[in-house]
Design a protein around this nucleic acid. Structure first.
Lengths: 135, 135
DNA sequence: AGTTGACTTGAAGTAAACTCCAAGTATTAA
DNA sequence: TTAATACTTGGAGTTTACTTCAAGTCAACT
């Protein structure tokens, strides 16, 4: 895997150059090296890290968690346990998300089936029968 | 199912009263009826709608999509097809999310297993070998 | 009568994650 | 030599989805 310019990385992982620079600024992609003219380049190792970021971001892992992880990586072996703990916590957050997602998917499928079979016409709307409550 | 006050609904679905009023303001929960003193109450039908909102919001369905759906519900039968289409689109978005989520979960599980087996110590960090590129 | 508690309003403020902009530099192409 | 293209920087602006606030009303206790 060759080193890549910011635009090449941007295309490879489908995120904007602005986002890549932003990630660097906030400490999510530390120590991005430069060519003589000042332009960034991204090594194989960084590309792997960026792929990881993009993957986890698509699942809603927060930037804060990823920065924490990046900073612990930099501090070295003393952070091994904390890093594993962070990964476990994020995993459990994603598994909760998956649970919610499955509930929503089932709900939508059920609702769509009501439309398909014409059963939805019977119920007018969620917004019905409004008279002022006397108490 | 009895009618409920804003606080009761807030507790039942674990969202704040402020959020309920906000949803109403932006057209996501139209026509909330009032008691003589001006206080809101929520009928069974509205509670079902709110449950749906909360469920789908937990899966990342946008408020915009839910407002669209609510507005179409109000317009009646002429929007039946468009409503079904909206639900199908949201379903496919959620299925994409599920796919991403599974990828992330597998990635995290794999990474955690590297920590568990001590294999992670071998690789130093994502951030290595930085010398200035001569071109 | 006064205080408490639950509600009301409209408006302003916040947090996360980008996203865009203006001005400048450097390499390439004509 | 001029023009185009691809980067650079710092800072400001945007979007989504709430969240907080100040000031007021209303009903129920003490």
């Amino acid at each position: 895997m060759p080193d890549l310019t910011i635009t090449a990385v941007s295309k490879k992982y489908d995120i904007s150059s602005d986002t890549l620079r932003y990630y660097e600024r906030i400490g999510l992609i530390p120590h991005v090296p430069r060519k003589k003219n000042g332009n960034r380049y991204y090594t194989e190792g960084m590309q792997d890290w960026i792929e990881m970021i993009v993957c986890l971001r698509h699942s809603g892992v927060t930037i804060e968690a990823l920065i924490d992880y990046a900073q612990m990586l930099e501090k070295g072996d003393s952070t091994l346990e904390a890093r594993e703990a962070l990964l476990r916590e994020q995993l459990s957050l994603l598994e909760e998300k998956k649970f919610n997602l499955n509930r929503s998917i089932n709900r939508l499928k059920h609702k769509i089936s009501l439309y398909e079979t014409g059963k939805i016409k019977k119920g007018k709307s969620y917004f019905e029968e409004y008279k002022i409550k006397d108490d």
